[in-house]
Design a protein around this nucleic acid. Structure first.
Lengths: 219, 219
DNA sequence: ATATTTTTTTAGGTTAGTCTAAAATTTATA
DNA sequence: TATAAATTTTAGACTAACCTAAAAAAATAT
């Protein structure tokens, strides 16, 4: 059996692994789990004994195939529950993360299966993140970052790659929400900031930092 | 903050209290929690320090007002989730208890509120048990036990007061399900067993033990 | 290439929730 | 009402997940 806490470690290692080819350091995990490096070392040894990660001391950690599968199932549950909370219960997309952090550990394959069906087999969560299927396969959504879109192109906003409440509320304030069309009017050479048109007639100016975190679909 | 385990103890003490006026014994709690009496003693001392139960050693335990409120909130969540699982996800009523045992500990008042609304403010769960409101008030459903119904009366089956899978599957087998009409044909003086008519033309014979656990609405 | 800094691990300790075995208390019985 | 039986509590120990402080290893800088 795998515990709530172990599941969280696997999920965190999975997410850190997505950003690099290298092993994940003890400190990197400690920062995300909000624990001390010593605690992480203990847990890595334990996960290693269960064959969920490959870990050599001082050399960082990597998920094994079965560790990755477990991580993907947790992520699948998290994202399905987020869809439920937003689409069925009417929560705002910036309110669901905490609750989904709890729901993702509910243990029942039958439940996940039925929830998926009830939601109409969604491909992505309310932030545009892809939902792995029951075998752990991620759907290929082909979204790009707005920062990679050239001048005079028009795209549709599909998601975000940063989920902080701050960021989501900033987007709401400047009129950016899922499904709106965004036209890139001008890209500033110096700092890569963008002048964009949101919808039909709202103009806005956003930094490269923000553009990098917006997922869009090219028409 | 109150833990998963503490919530379970409160819920169990609440349920045991419904069956008696007296204090609940350490052993009674141990039996339901599937732990040893020594562990229960430890927990009762802790809950007592938190003012959630009143407990004098060797004298058994009772919920305080705030302990009872917490227990009722857990029961509320359990029953709302059961409604969700059956009405929305299509589970059978004998399959939902385990999953609801996990879901009942998810911590968000906003979630419970919205779930209640999404389900249409149900008055009772799929077993006919009343769902406390957000203030902990139980709706008065006025159901009776089938064992208290006299000969020649007709009632509607509304629920059960025993939730074991065994029992629920036995009911399914003899054709008893929520909403069917039951007519009491004859009551056996000797052992109080009943001859009943289920629906229009199905006759059946049930023991007093079974009749005691069926909740019915008198027309 | 050595010294310094940073990272990681080890050693030993804490808390929540459990256990067993023994002691204390209550209840039942003769 | 004294004794036996049952119940409950205490004492001491275990595991999971965390901690701090110190030691060890790796990375960086002089």
């Amino acid at each position: 059996m795998i515990s709530f806490t172990e599941e969280n470690y696997l999920k965190i290692i999975y997410k850190l692994s997505a950003e690099t080819e290298n092993e994940i350091s003890t400190n990197a995990v400690a920062e995300v789990t909000q624990t001390k490096a010593a605690s992480v070392t203990d847990m890595l040894r334990k996960l290693s004994e269960k064959q969920l990660v490959s870990y050599q001391k001082y050399q960082g950690v990597r998920l094994t195939k079965s560790g990755e599968n477990l991580a993907l199932q947790v992520i699948r549950k998290h994202r399905l529950w987020e869809v439920f909370l937003v689409n069925k219960l009417g929560f705002n997309w910036d309110e669901v993360h905490e609750i989904a952090e709890e729901l993702e550990h509910i243990n029942s394959d039958e439940l996940v299966q039925r929830l998926d069906e009830f939601l109409g087999f969604p491909q992505c969560d309310p932030h545009g993140d892809p939902i792995p299927d029951s075998h752990g396969r991620m759907p290929e959504l082909g979204y790009k970052n707005l920062s990679d879109i050239g001048e005079n192109q028009t795209v549709i906003m599909m998601g975000v790659s940063q989920h902080s409440t701050n960021f989501l509320q900033y987007l709401a304030k400047i009129g950016l929400s899922l499904g709106v069309s965004i036209s890139v009017i001008e890209v500033n050479d110096f700092d890569k900031s963008l002048t964009i048109k949101i919808g039909e007639n709202l103009h806005s100016f956003i930094s490269y930092e923000v553009a990098k975190n917006l997922l869009v679909k090219v028409l």
